[in-house]
Design a protein around this nucleic acid. Structure first.
Lengths: 344, 344
DNA sequence: TTGAAAGCGTTACCAC
DNA sequence: GTGGTAACGCTTTCAA
């Protein structure tokens, strides 16, 4: 609870010198700096947050808005919150949580009271109501996810379409002609912004490459093991040999289980790629190729963009899509020639 | 971005009157108040957070520290974060997130910089390092969970021991002589504070009532379906007719599945109580009696205690255990007489 | 390279 | 019931 004037006195310098030494905003002689550092340590000085917010123009706080929807996948969501927090701290920022109904109204509140310097938006819906808000408030807002109407917004996300395309290409390169996508629960295609993007990429790539494409969701309102297993079985029955899985760890394990249960093997009979997953696909019963969704990458970029938006001449808002990275682990291989029914 | 002096001018009163009208800290005539309210609305005035923190002694922010452990059950954890946030907002407080390594060091930082008025501690470990910190910082700290060494601390939690005791009594009242506890993964009995408390309550009540008590965890480091199912089967084989389940929704469903698979029925053959669960036990395939862990109750109380600790003469720190509530749904019944092997 | 002092926008004390 | 004004603890301009 020491104050800046005590530090100044202890170091034998003026208040402003202490302030500049701490902020690094002007050159300080090595000798002076050493005395100040010593005094700071000695007194365990920490600048008062309120005074800083008032005098400076920065609060060093970002709001994180996240409307915990009932169908939100908790582990993934937690990863993003954690990643956002880490990204913020790397830049000496704190995260203020805005949840539930406050996810929207709270944005206005904290923006106009000057509590935060910017807003990070999580769990973006295609028709997200926070889009309109972002356009009205005076502080920078970064969406982690891409809403349908994103004109004039700064958005950050994995390039889900390219991820799906990339995965389909791999399967096609391995001569798979019938591919299947194990997707999210049906409701996610309405409430979330990214499942439809994966599906679009999948459909487009399959069409372009002339593949036979199948799709099954893993439940209606939430993941359901029975629905998942049935969908997988149906696709195998329909001749699918190359799978994309854009679903939970459980659903991915279910594909392995169904394949194994049929006496088939990976990659000899069936190939499999996990797309946009945020769990460790190398730790499954069989290591699985994946194109991971890395929360830390999205959040680091989001925080970076928010900070840049606070600078003198901020960059123009736009959508930043992160390049997907393919991790090979041996779960994709050529179609077994003997099992080809119509190998032209 | 209007300031208080503009509101004052618009309402034709002094700055201090506006301040008092907004805080309600001194009587204002109805007429004056009306003019001020109108001006506030007109200008969309919101007090500047930094100025408030500096001038007043409150920041209206609580820190929430939560060291997302790898073995943390994400959905339950999310419920608590959400509940804490809601509890805070009900009292016009915001939540600042402290995660990961910052969960501890961040406590010092935000406490001594005056960023927050108090700290809420989530995900409490038996030997939590935040206990020592709480004793050293100058602001109130409330633990949601009870660490082993809690002398001088304010803690809030469900009375897990009584919850377990209560459940065992219900089973004993229904003439069950052999009871089983389906617990958390083994690691939770080291890393978390409450699983051992449930187990202690279970053991103590069984001993006191002269019941034969069995226990199985649901995995080692994380929930594992196979381990869970096997444990349940073993206990049924050992003659367990009355189950306590202190585990995930999945594990609870597994008990129902195993019972059903054996052609047994609930509650005719097997009775079942879910203890300290934070999912909806009435929505399972068979509605299950439960003694729920209600995050909102804990968090409301925690926030309340934090606020009271900020008052003039704060109450003495102590452990506040919340009374368990039994919800009857028909999953507990008398032991089937015919199957009694040794009915004394 | 350093210092003095004017704000920053509230709150709360002291007067009336 | 209302108004004037001194803090609150820092940042930053202006001066040296």
């Amino acid at each position: 609870m020491a104050k800046i004037d005590e530090v100044a006195k202890a170091a034998g310098v003026s208040i402003s010198t202490v302030s500049y030494a701490l902020s690094g905003k002007r050159p300080i002689s090595a000798d002076t700096r050493a005395r100040i550092d010593a005094a700071v340590r000695e007194l365990d000085y920490r600048p008062n947050a309120g005074a800083r917010m008032l005098a400076g123009s920065r609060t060093s706080i970002f709001a994180l808005t996240e409307p915990f929807r009932p169908d939100t996948h908790a582990p993934t969501h937690m990863s993003f919150v954690l990643a956002a927090s880490i990204a913020a701290r790397r830049n000496d920022y704190d995260i203020l949580l805005l949840t539930e109904e406050e996810a929207s109204s709270g944005m206005r509140r904290v923006a106009s009271s000057g509590l935060v310097d910017g807003v990070l938006v999580l769990d973006v819906a295609p028709d997200d109501e926070r889009v309109a808000l972002a356009r009205r408030i005076a502080i920078p807002t970064v969406f982690i996810g891409v809403p349908d109407d994103h004109a004039g917004l700064t958005c950050v996300d994995l390039d889900f379409e390219r991820a799906a395309t990339l995965a389909v290409r791999r399967l096609a390169d391995a001569q798979h002609r019938v591919v299947g996508l194990v997707g999210q629960p049906a409701i996610a295609y309405e409430n979330s912004n990214f499942p439809p993007r994966v599906r679009r990429g999948f459909d487009a790539a399959a069409r372009e490459l002339g593949l036979d494409a199948h799709f099954r969701s893993t439940g209606s309102n939430r993941p359901d093991a029975a629905t998942t297993r049935r969908g997988i079985a149906e696709m195998i029955d329909a001749g699918v040999t190359g799978f994309l899985v854009h679903a939970s760890e459980e659903a991915t394990a279910a594909v392995l289980a169904e394949v194994t249960a049929r006496g088939l093997s990976i990659p000899a009979d069936v190939s499999l790629i996990s797309v946009a997953s945020s769990f460790d696909a190398s730790a499954l019963a069989i290591a699985v190729d994946d194109i991971p969704l890395v929360p830390q990458r999205s959040c680091d970029l989001a925080v970076d963009l928010a900070l840049r938006a606070l600078e003198d001449d901020p960059p123009k808002p736009r959508v930043h899509l992160i390049e997907p990275q393919y991790h090979s682990r041996g779960s994709v291989g050529p179609v077994r020639p003997t099992s080809g029914e119509r190998t032209d």
